[in-house]
């Protein structure tokens, strides 16, 4: 999952800052492993969007892989 990009156009906007989300590099971590991935993020407050298909797809796969390591 390291150095992967998961950016995709989205209708979600940050309600707090009233901003469109932008692609940005983010560190995600699980069981001691850190991955630098590109996700859609609010440019002002840094709210990171994890869409459903990512959470239940690639992210879940990597979680399970790490759990068996």
């Amino acid at each position: 999952m390291s150095n992967f990009s998961f950016i995709a156009e989205t209708d979600w906007r940050c309600a707090c800052c009233n901003k469109n989300l932008q692609a940005s590099k983010v560190n995600v971590e699980y069981m001691g492993s850190v991955f630098n991935v590109e996700l859609m993020v609010c440019p002002d407050c840094g709210f990171v969007l994890i869409p459903e298909d990512l959470a239940l797809g690639k992210m879940l796969q990597v979680e399970q892989l790490l759990e068996d390591k």
């Binding site: 983010v26 995600v28 699980y30 459903e52 239940l56 992210m59 879940l60």
Partner: peptide, 12 residues
């Protein structure tokens, strides 16, 4: 309308 979850941690 929908709910899902993950275990990976995000910054903040």
């Amino acid at each position: 309308h929908n709910a899902y979850s993950h275990r990976m941690s995000l910054p903040g």
